Simulated scan of single mutants.
Amino acid sequence: MKQLSEARARLPRVKISDELQLLISELCSKLEVDGLRGDLVTNRAAKALVAFEGRDRVTQEDIERVVAFCLNHRMRKDPLDPIDNGMKVRLLFKRMTDPEVVRREEEAKRKREEAEKKAKESGQANRGAMKAGAWGGLPGR
């Protein structure tokens, strides 16, 4: 009981960085959680955990510990999906915060953009070289 009353007194002093709040919002967006309640509950749960444990600063690990509990029931259910939503939340959070995964995804995105740029440039260059009356396919986007 004493730990709980101390946590209540400490809670107003617990801080969460803007970066972590943005991470929570991005996660909710990727999970297609409607509204802001998922963001708010996750922020508050992480702060409450930190206060209960006697600390004053939320870390990424604290969010990881509470995020599935906060968002699992806020996702749309697919009855044919073999993975429960709590596991989906944990996996996506891990993927969004693992530096190696983030680096690989950024590299893949850069390569896709370069390939699209080259395809667009070569497609426009080839159009001018086509003979009159030849069908060049659908126009590029």
Rank of each mutant, 00 (worst) to 15 (best):
E26N: 15
F93H: 09
P82N: 06
K120Q: 14
V66K: 05
E116G: 02
K117V: 07
R37Q: 14
R74G: 00
P12Q: 09
L40H: 14
A132D: 12
K77L: 10
K109I: 03
I63W: 06
A119E: 11
Q21A: 10
G133S: 06
F52W: 11
G136C: 07
A125C: 01
K118S: 11
E19L: 11
L27G: 04
N72Y: 04
R90N: 11
G136W: 01
N85F: 08
R127V: 02
L27Q: 10
S29T: 07
P79E: 09
A46H: 00
K117P: 05
R127M: 10
P82G: 02
A68W: 00
V58D: 05
T97Q: 05
L92Y: 06
D84C: 08
W135E: 12
D62N: 09
E121R: 07
K118H: 04
M130A: 10
G137I: 04
V67Q: 00
D98S: 03
E116M: 07
A119K: 06
L71R: 03
C70L: 01
K117F: 11
G133L: 11
G86R: 05
P99N: 00
R44C: 09
E121A: 09
V67M: 02
L80H: 14
I83F: 14
L49Q: 13
D34Q: 15
R90M: 15
K2G: 02
I16M: 14
R37H: 09
R37N: 13
T59A: 13
N43Q: 15
D56L: 08
E121Q: 13
N126E: 12
L71Q: 05
A129F: 13
R110M: 09
K109L: 14
K88Y: 02
V66F: 00
K118F: 08
Q60V: 07
S25F: 05
D78K: 12
V14P: 05
E114K: 07
L138D: 13
R95Y: 06
A108L: 11
K120F: 15
Q124C: 09
R37F: 08
A9V: 11
V102Q: 06
V101Q: 14
L22V: 02
K88C: 03
L138M: 15
S5A: 05
A48C: 09
M1Q: 14
S29L: 12
P139Y: 06
L71Y: 01
G128A: 13
I24H: 00
L20V: 07
L71E: 01
T42D: 02
S29G: 13
F93C: 01
R104P: 00
D81V: 03
E121F: 02
V41F: 09
K15Q: 15
L27V: 03
R44N: 12
V66E: 04
P82R: 05
L11T: 02
M75Q: 04
P99K: 03
L91Q: 06
N126T: 05
V89L: 10
A119Q: 02
P12S: 07
L36S: 12
A132C: 06
L23M: 15
G86D: 04
K15G: 03
